[in-house]
Amino acid sequence: MKPFQFKQFIIHQDRCAMKIGTDGVLLGSWVPISDEMNSVLDIGAGTGVIALMMAQRSYAETIDAIEIDDQAYEQAVENFEASDWGDRLFCYHASFQEFFQEIDDEYDLLISNPPFYTDDYKTDDSTRDMARFEDALPFEHLFIGVSHLLSQKGKFAVILPYKEENKVIDIAKGVELYPQKITRVKGTPSSEIKRSMMLFGFNEVLVKTDELIIENSRHQYTEEYIKLTKDFYLKM
Results as ranks from 00 to 15, higher is better:
98 E>C: 01
124 D>M: 04
236 M>N: 11
100 F>E: 02
163 K>G: 04
167 K>D: 11
114 P>M: 04
227 K>L: 06
129 D>Y: 06
59 Y>W: 00
19 K>W: 09
24 G>R: 06
146 V>A: 15
52 L>N: 05
130 M>T: 14
95 S>I: 01
219 H>F: 11
82 A>Y: 07
129 D>H: 09
55 A>V: 10
56 Q>S: 09
155 K>W: 04
155 K>G: 03
28 G>D: 12
215 E>N: 03
23 D>E: 11
56 Q>G: 07
222 T>C: 10
41 L>K: 01
94 A>I: 00
212 L>V: 02
51 A>Y: 09
155 K>A: 06
194 K>C: 01
49 V>R: 02
93 H>R: 15
227 K>Y: 07
234 L>N: 07
194 K>S: 09
23 D>L: 07
120 D>R: 11
135 D>Q: 13
182 I>Y: 04
147 S>E: 12
196 S>L: 03
82 A>D: 13
230 K>N: 14
60 A>P: 05
90 F>A: 04
203 N>Q: 14
7 K>A: 09
154 G>F: 00
6 F>G: 07
141 H>E: 15
118 T>F: 03
20 I>N: 05
186 K>H: 10
51 A>M: 09
70 D>M: 07
1 M>R: 13
1 M>V: 13
99 F>N: 03
29 S>M: 10
117 Y>S: 08
129 D>I: 08
207 V>G: 06
106 E>R: 00
147 S>A: 14
85 W>E: 08
137 L>W: 05
164 E>F: 10
131 A>D: 09
129 D>V: 03
160 L>S: 03
214 I>A: 02
196 S>Y: 05
230 K>Q: 15
78 E>P: 00
228 L>K: 10
43 I>G: 08
19 K>T: 05
30 W>S: 06
9 F>M: 06
16 C>V: 09
133 F>N: 15
231 D>A: 13
83 S>G: 09
105 D>K: 00
145 G>L: 08
163 K>L: 12
212 L>D: 02
119 D>R: 11
229 T>R: 12
62 T>A: 01
203 N>V: 11
106 E>W: 03
193 I>C: 03
27 L>D: 01
185 V>I: 15
170 D>H: 10
198 M>D: 07
206 L>N: 12
77 V>Q: 12
207 V>E: 05
88 R>Q: 09
204 E>L: 06
207 V>K: 09
112 S>Q: 06
197 M>R: 01
88 R>W: 05
161 P>S: 02
174 G>R: 13
142 L>Y: 11
184 R>A: 00
166 N>F: 07
169 I>G: 00
